[in-house]
């Protein structure tokens, strides 16, 4: 299983990003090999439509689950279409800490109803 995490930099000790689609990097943790890999988020500089494109980036990386700070409606639609589940972390953690909290089942799953706003 592959778990994506929105990261502000490209190490497991970096802070998680405070935005989803415009996160600088995506960390991808592979639960079979126990390895982290880091990818530039190529969607982050899009003028518009970054949400959908960011999900496409994760979909192409074959991510099954993603840990996020928040999600817009386009990203939610796209995550559903790519069959990627999402869980919400709190700010101020590192990528590794967010991942551990996910394994400890401390992160709430993001469902449509929990989302504020439309963009």
């Amino acid at each position: 299983m592959k778990i994506g995490i929105c990261a502000s930099d490209h190490t497991p000790e970096s802070l998680v990003a405070n935005r989803f689609a415009r996160a600088p990097y995506f960390a991808v943790y592979n639960s079979e090999t126990l390895d982290f890999a880091f990818f530039n988020n190529t969607a982050k500089d899009e003028g518009s439509g970054a949400g959908g494109k960011a999900v496409k980036v994760l979909g192409d990386l074959k991510v099954d689950i993603v840990l996020v700070p928040e999600l817009g409606p386009k990203a939610i639609d796209a995550l559903n279409a790519f069959e990627i589940k999402s869980y919400q972390y709190k700010q101020g953690k590192t990528v590794r800490e967010a991942l551990y909290e996910y394994f400890e089942k401390k992160l709430p799953e993001m469902l449509d109803a929990s989302v504020k706003g439309k963009h």
């Binding site: 494109k53 979909g59 279409a81």
Partner: peptide, 23 residues
């Protein structure tokens, strides 16, 4: 279609193609 679109308005996913009409 997704490769061609410059505006992120059409994104092919696992089982369907997403269209964002406002984009």
């Amino acid at each position: 279609c997704g490769e061609f679109c410059n505006f992120n308005a059409i994104i092919p996913a696992k089982k369907k193609v997403l269209v964002f009409d406002d984009l």
